[in-house]
Design a protein around this nucleic acid. Structure first.
Lengths: 135, 135
DNA sequence: CCTTTTTTTGTATTCATTACAATTTTGTAT
DNA sequence: ATACAAAATTGTAATGAATACAAAAAAAGG
């Protein structure tokens, strides 16, 4: 099942401009949790007129509409994830990569007097690949 | 049990200067998860010569020695917590406060091939107080 | 004291993100 | 098609938290 960016944007009443479609498609096809600048660097060759501001605007728009989610692990970098389902992240302190972690539904917190709108879980450590390299 | 900042710093081979002691004591006595600037604003009247750089340096030093932990929820604000035990946080999107959330030991993640050094859990939503106000 | 090391401080810099205004593109009605 | 209005994109300027750096001050150890 290949998702249709144009359709899904229209469904949220967002005009499917070329830039928006490509940004969304890129977030769907990568699992690297890119930063806004990563996305700009990746798409700039293909869309020469693309501006960083458009990338930032678009990401903010998408997040507001729950089409993507932002992943904040370091205070100086905002990463983006095309998968909005609740899942955890693992940041490797060696290679700096951010990996997805399946998180079961064991999350029943006693926050009965609060309204929980978002749940974020992440770990920091050494990923399997880097661990192997260390022998 | 009142903890002794001077002692605990010495135990970690950190010279207990007045600035360092007061920063640590302040983090112990507050549960507000202040930013570096919050800490500066709070201690500045009492220590007129205090500089923001000292606050930043000290916080980084403390975190490296696992005396405090940083709490990153928004990408543009780093907060600090004098409680280094594993616990969750809840950020209220109304009043912006960050509250502690006790987190049981139900966290057994299948990360067997990784080395997990830090676990972070936080929620975003509306806190009990703000929820009541909304009636 | 005097010298060396450590800590603190103020200023300058960095860098991701946002603000803003101008330009371009798109949608709609004539 | 053409003109007009609305929306999206763009480039530049501004913001602001965090860091770099070097000088001044304080502390340690003879």
């Amino acid at each position: 099942m290949t998702r249709n960016a144009e359709k899904e944007l229209r469904a949220k009443d967002i005009r499917p401009s070329y830039q928006r479609k490509r940004i969304l498609e890129y977030l769907w096809e990568t699992k690297s949790h890119p930063t806004a600048d990563d996305i700009y660097q990746k798409l700039h060759p293909e869309i020469p007129t693309l501006s960083r501001t458009t990338v930032y605007n678009t990401l903010r728009l998408f997040e507001k509409h729950n089409i993507i989610q932002s992943v904040v692990i370091e205070s100086n970098e905002m990463r983006f994830d095309g998968d909005v389902s609740t899942h955890g992240h693992f940041k490797c302190l060696d290679c700096q990569k951010v990996l997805d972690i399946p998180v079961k539904d064991k999350f029943k917190f006693d926050l009965k007097d609060s309204i929980v709108m978002e749940t974020h879980i992440y770990f920091r450590g050494i990923c399997p690949a880097c661990r192997k390299e260390r022998i």
